[in-house]
Amino acid sequence: MDAVHPSAWAFVVVALGGALLSVSLRNILHAIFGLALALFGIAGLFLYLGSPFVAAMEVLIYVGGISVAMVFAVMLAYSLGKKEGGSTRRFLAVVPVGGFFGVVGYALLRASFAVTSKTGSWDLKLVGRKLLLDYNVVFEALSVVLLLAIVGAIIIARRDEKTGDDKTADEKAASKGNDAASAEERAS
């Protein structure tokens, strides 16, 4: 059993800090930046866990794709004047979250895992081989899911041509949302 180098804690701080920011910041746009920060931190943790490839994908897809798409969406659908939830809502949220954290954390601390020394190969070639040989059905299924997601996103977000005669500025903006949605499609 070999522990990860303690410098990983830096990424832990980045990840948790980003997550905290994304949760606590009032402005939704800022929250997305917080999310991006957290994702960077998580990518770093992946790096430490031995998988640079997954870390790269994390940055590429999450930070480069999903977060950017979110930014686009916020630009298109940001309702002004809406305030974030009050203290009652927060308090109500703390109970299940705290309960969850307590129960699972307690279980984690009590649990003992059969930790082994690293034996397997972290070779990227192996991952590719497995992906296309052993897991090719899942791989294909995922590609179909992604295709369906793209088609579905277009259908859902498309402005109805027939009822769209009283086009407002908002709707015009919304119809452009398709582009934003497909943009992140391409990114993924």
């Binding site: 109500l92 109970v95 299940p96 979250v97 309960g99 969850f100 129960v103 699972v104 279980a107």
Partner: peptide, 20 residues
Amino acid sequence: LQLYIGSAVLLIVVFCYFVG
């Protein structure tokens, strides 16, 4: 919506607590 999710999570927590 969030009330629903919250109560669902709370239920799961309680369930886990007893089953655990």
